[in-house]
Amino acid sequence: MAKSSKASDRQGAAATWLLVAPALAIVAGLLVAPVANTATMPLTSGRAVALYQRFFTGAFNQAVTLRTLEIAAVTTVVSLVLGFVAAYVVARAPQKARSILIVAAVFPLLTGTVVRSFAFMVILGRNGLANDFLQKVGLASAPLQMLYTEFAVIVGLVYLFTPLMIVSLVGVLENIDPDLSRAAASLGATPGAVFRQVILPLAVPGLIVGSVLVFTGSFTAFATPQLLGGEQQTVLATLLYQKAMVSFDWMGAATIATVMVVITLLVVVAMTMLARRLNPATG
């Protein structure tokens, strides 16, 4: 009896692995192996040290790396603030209004990055809405160059990622038991104190998850900096693309790829650890 059940267990385990195998094969064959291959390309070239040295000491590459980090950081902070305000209101709205507001946040999310970045080309362009407005109000006498600036890239990325922040925060805020706010109020907490001492600490995991998504997303974004930043505002993703597809410097592209993967993983790991520390209740 015991023996046969063990045998069927082993058979079950084999069947289970069989079910997972095709999906594993896709991830392993199309992602893990090729990316590992890319990552080891500079290492196995025999001049890895020189490659990375050149990358990190080159003034242009340094500027691009710093710009990419700066853009990602600013985008994260701005989307966090905008997303939290919107999500807080959405989570507390009556059922019907809440559904409509969630749809309104999801719709831009489902509209492609190219379309959404293009929208800001129209708005920030020389004949665009923003310049029209500035001239009418008298803040500018001639059309300003807004496109192809770091500002344009950040606005575009904030636009891209705020809905993501809203959607991930609404879920977290809705899951906070309303009785906790009531309990806090019954114990004398003013609405402000309820927010600071109960809602905000409980929302921290959601804030961190949202921040990770936005930071890594804007750190690696391609279409938006390509369209709104152009060559003047090259970031790591567009630089990788140029090296790979324009100047056919695949070794250089692989070097950038490694840098991007390492920074992304570092940020994800650091933020996950931070989340654990800040909210032991979930750990």
Partner: peptide
């Protein structure tokens, strides 16, 4: 999702 898409794309191109 974790690996930057642009890196995935480049690696797939080589593959």
């Amino acid at each position: 999702i974790l690996i930057p898409e642009i890196v995935t794309g480049f690696s797939l191109l080589r593959l």
